[in-house]
Design a protein around this nucleic acid. Structure first.
Lengths: 237, 237
DNA sequence: GCTTGTCATTGACGATCATCAAAACAGAAC
DNA sequence: GTTCTGTTTTGATGATCGTCAATGACAAGC
């Protein structure tokens, strides 16, 4: 059924940890060299920081689920510049678009920190999708979620100031990457200034000034890629 | 198969004209009062300008495909204001998100001009999706397309000036709603200034000034909701 | 050590923009 | 016609923003 709530089966921990590409199907990991004859098979891949999962323009080889770490999706423009489009956290599915239309990847996917992805080869993905429509429905639901998030972001970009957007983005990042350290929460941002600037949609110079202003106002304290905020900042947020 | 190109069957004109919710399934129109026992059934609904298709918060009753006209999707905020999120042109599917998660509509859908939608009731939609995975795949593909468009819009909002964005948006609208009239192309914009302002993400006052500037520059000529551009404008665009 | 390259910050400037308030306008009802 | 309503435009102002250029920080390589 298309609107299934998670069933007992789908709540069973999937071998790859976070993978969405799963609905009670039979799965077996593929260690390099081994072959599986089962319905679905997947392959864990570890990525170091800055390692590329796929390049922009590569033919789609399948679907990827982030199970650990953080993947950046970037587009490279004709003039040599590039733009960070999206951060993919564990649980996110990557490559679904080019999987559906059997086309090429429109973005580059690159690990920002050491990461693990669960890769499902094209053929297997197709087989599982055909066998379990619920998987496709869940993937579709994720797409719809992403549409929602993007629309929220469009509204935010249009209606809020750059400073607000930066503060929001920082809080999100701190929530994911921060650790409580006594009276403060420390987070090492997994992004360069350029990437962070892309994320909130300003040029790097403007970001730098915003960071300066935000630092002066006292709530955030920056030093390089590290940010600190008061520990009660999260609870009240 | 998930990446099917349109087949002969799916290219057969669907009775409702533009509906995507179709893949060789058996369809029959439901005239008010009649009942169908076939796999899929749909109902044409005509909307006058400004008539509401569904309200924000309504429980999802099914999926809608625009077959003629233009539907505006708006969110109403807590403070009483509202924001135009998206224009749905013929061929677009509406309500898919709340269909998937069986939730409530997060937006209001309202016809901007006289329109026709093909409505597919929840139960029927579920049945067809279960029977024809290809339909779901195509719907998913549309979602993915929408993600692409939204991302393009996010980049555009972040990197281009308001004036550029207005000009682009106007050209799109003229392309859809314009008619050649001798040396010029005339288009009656189907949007209020407020909606147009939402679409490009500026307050109405700013939009008004932008329109003023654009008019002075000579390419676009405005009078109320009507726009005129030189006829060769489209060919060279 | 020095150079080189990359990335981040700062400075200066002009253009753009949002906001508030007021005026002009259009359309509907009478 | 007149009045009323809601929308659109205009005006004035100050803040924000993007751009170009210069500077600073820092690591890698010779």
């Amino acid at each position: 059924m298309i609107h299934d709530r998670p069933t007992a089966a789908s709540q069973t921990p999937h071998p790859c940890g976070q993978c969405q590409f799963y609905e009670g199907s039979v799965w077996t990991p593929i260690e390099p060299g081994s072959v599986s004859v089962l319905a679905g098979r997947f392959h864990r891949r570890e990525l170091e920081a800055d390692q590329v999962l796929f390049e922009q323009g590569d033919a789609n080889q399948g679907v990827f689920c982030v199970s650990r770490g953080l993947i950046a999706l970037r587009t490279h423009h004709a003039d040599g510049t590039s733009t960070l489009l999206k951060l993919a956290y564990p649980g996110e599915v990557i490559g679904f678009r080019s999987f559906l239309d059997n086309g090429n990847h429109k973005t580059e996917a690159r690990a920002l920190i050491p990461s693990r992805v669960c890769t499902v080869a094209r053929r297997d993905a197709e087989r599982v999708v055909r066998a379990s429509p619920g998987v496709l429905a869940r993937l579709a639901a994720r797409c719809v979620d992403e549409i929602d998030r993007n629309q929220a972001r469009i509204i935010a970009t249009a209606t809020t100031s750059n400073k607000e957007r930066l503060a929001d983005t920082l809080m999100e990042l701190i929530e994911r990457h921060g650790e409580v350290d006594g009276e403060v929460i420390r987070a090492r941002l997994p992004l360069s200034r350029k990437d962070l600037a892309d994320l909130i949609g300003v040029p790097p110079e403007t970001l730098s000034r915003l960071i300066g202003r935000l630092g002066k106002e006292g709530f955030f304290a920056f030093s390089g890629r590290e940010v600190r905020i008061p520990a009660e900042g999260v609870r009240t947020a």
